[in-house]
């Protein structure tokens, strides 16, 4: 079993909820990204999502857009992000999932992109603008490289789509909390909860809710429906406003809340 599946299945077996956190590679610089990843692991994050900045991120809200724009302006490149993963791997085995848009992958060369990141040490790939109908583009390469291509479901997904996506799912299923982009604050997860229920009928895969989870309350509300929660924009906001110490506090408080509830 892969590092990612092992971690998430292990959590599930022990009745704990998983905490997946997101960072944009190279924001505000690579040294900070590296240090923040390790700090988040120390505070109890289970999986790290590394966003590879793209110039036109259509699924992202203002916070992640801004981080990507700034990272690109200050010289973030795919090659440097691959190097970042290799650096993280020198001191950590935490599951790493790369999140980026189709064109980052195509632009660099899809075979090479996936091979280079896998070699550096990633455990999965999330591509938010690659729906079910287009997965053929990367599916085989991911299989060959031995990493899951993480599927996404949304509140608008029809029952048929939910089933198809869930049946193919590997690693975990990314459940988008609301119709919209990343960021903001959402506290109502009933709608995606219904979608998750349908997905569970055909798949045993861990379900993770993301988009708009900004604090412990949000995380605990989402955790009622899912096996894991994904926190992104809120982490970047903390990083911008309060530095790594702020990120530590946020991750710790969410971790404590999640653990408190699953006891």
């Amino acid at each position: 079993m892969s590092n990612l599946s092992e971690t998430l299945q292990g959590l599930k077996a022990s009745g704990r909820k998983g905490l997946i956190v997101y960072l944009t590679a190279g924001y505000p610089d690579y040294a900070t990204t590296l240090e923040t990843v390790l700090a988040m692991e120390a505070e109890g994050a289970d999986v790290i999502e590394i966003g590879i900045p793209f110039s036109d991120p259509i699924a992202d809200g203002p916070v992640i857009q801004h981080a990507a724009t700034l990272a690109l302006k200050t010289g973030s490149t795919t090659a440097k992000s691959i190097e970042l993963v290799a650096q993280i791997r020198k001191s950590s085995r935490i599951p790493l999932v790369v999140m980026t848009y189709v064109n980052s992958i195509l632009g660099y060369g899809k075979e090479k992109f996936i091979a280079d990141f896998v070699k550096a040490g990633i455990d999965g790939l999330i591509v938010p603008d690659l729906p079910l109908e287009e997965t053929g583009l990367l599916e085989d390469i991911c299989k060959r490289q031995g990493i899951p291509l993480i599927g996404l479901i949304a509140p608008t997904s029809t029952v048929d789509r939910i089933k198809c996506i869930a049946q193919k799912a590997e690693g975990f299923l990314y459940c988008v909390s609301n119709t919209g982009v990343t960021g903001g604050q959402h506290n109502n997860y009933d709608q995606i909860g219904t979608v998750i229920k349908a997905a569970r009928q055909v798949s045993q895969i861990p379900m993770a809710i993301g988009f708009g989870i900004g604090n412990s309350q949000g995380a605990s509300a989402a955790a009622r429906y899912a096996d894991a929660v994904i926190v992104g924009s809120a982490i970047l906001e903390k990083l911008t406003n309060e530095g790594i110490a702020g990120v530590r506090n946020l991750v710790r408080s969410i971790r404590e809340t999640l653990d408190g509830e699953s006891e």
């Binding site: 699924a59 189709v102 109908e133 287009e134 479901i153 608008t156 997904s157 789509r161």
Partner: peptide, 21 residues
Amino acid sequence: KNGKFGEFGGRFVPETVMPAL
């Protein structure tokens, strides 16, 4: 049926809007 003109076109969008498309 997938909106391709030869190799071009397609629907590279978030799942959220796929049902609407």
